[in-house]
Amino acid sequence: MKITTKKINLKHILFGGAALASMLGGMIFLDSAIAQEIRPTKIRRRCYRYTLINRTNRGVDFNLGRRKSFLRSKGQFSFRRCFKLRRRVRHPLVKYDEIIGQGYRVASVRLSPGRNAFDRQGRKLVLKTGGTDGPVPQIAPLEE
């Protein structure tokens, strides 16, 4: 029985392996380059500015989302919130005690972009939200 063996050329094996690795590396680079082009590098956002004004003669304690805040008499508080473009815009929720003096009743009002003002109507504290001519009362009209 005669066994024949071939000479293995080491130079061809190394060159073939290097070429294969280079090709695979190029394919990986191409995939990552395409993925980066599809995904934007900057996330687009829509930003709103809110201003809370206190028109009463007393300080107002309120919660802005989960954060407790205080607005002194005749004071002003401004902040900015940004939302991603594809998400639904949920303007901040303000909770405060609407009864002035003794008693406690929580009122919740969603702010609108622009100026929002705490004002007094009798023994009630109301939050007027921004309109075209400044803050207007946030009271639903009576149905007839």
Score class of each variant (00 low, 15 high):
85 L>I: 13
56 T>E: 02
57 N>V: 09
86 R>S: 07
52 L>K: 01
50 Y>K: 01
44 R>G: 14
34 I>P: 02
82 C>Y: 05
82 C>E: 03
37 E>D: 14
54 N>F: 07
91 H>G: 03
79 F>R: 04
57 N>T: 09
62 F>I: 01
76 Q>K: 15
65 G>N: 00
53 I>H: 02
53 I>L: 07
63 N>C: 10
74 K>M: 12
52 L>S: 04
58 R>C: 03
54 N>W: 01
68 K>M: 09
40 P>G: 03
73 S>I: 13
63 N>T: 14
82 C>L: 03
62 F>A: 05
90 R>T: 05
42 K>T: 15
72 R>N: 10
58 R>G: 06
81 R>N: 09
81 R>T: 05
45 R>L: 12
88 R>A: 14
48 Y>V: 07
40 P>D: 02
79 F>P: 01
50 Y>M: 03
44 R>L: 15
89 V>N: 01
81 R>F: 10
45 R>V: 13
34 I>M: 09
74 K>H: 12
33 A>M: 09
88 R>N: 11
65 G>M: 00
38 I>E: 13
32 S>W: 11
66 R>Q: 07
47 C>A: 04
32 S>H: 12
86 R>L: 06
55 R>H: 05
55 R>V: 08
42 K>V: 15
77 F>C: 04
63 N>R: 15
73 S>T: 11
88 R>V: 10
92 P>E: 03
41 T>W: 12
41 T>M: 13
42 K>A: 12
50 Y>V: 02
74 K>C: 10
53 I>C: 06
47 C>D: 02
59 G>P: 09
62 F>Q: 06
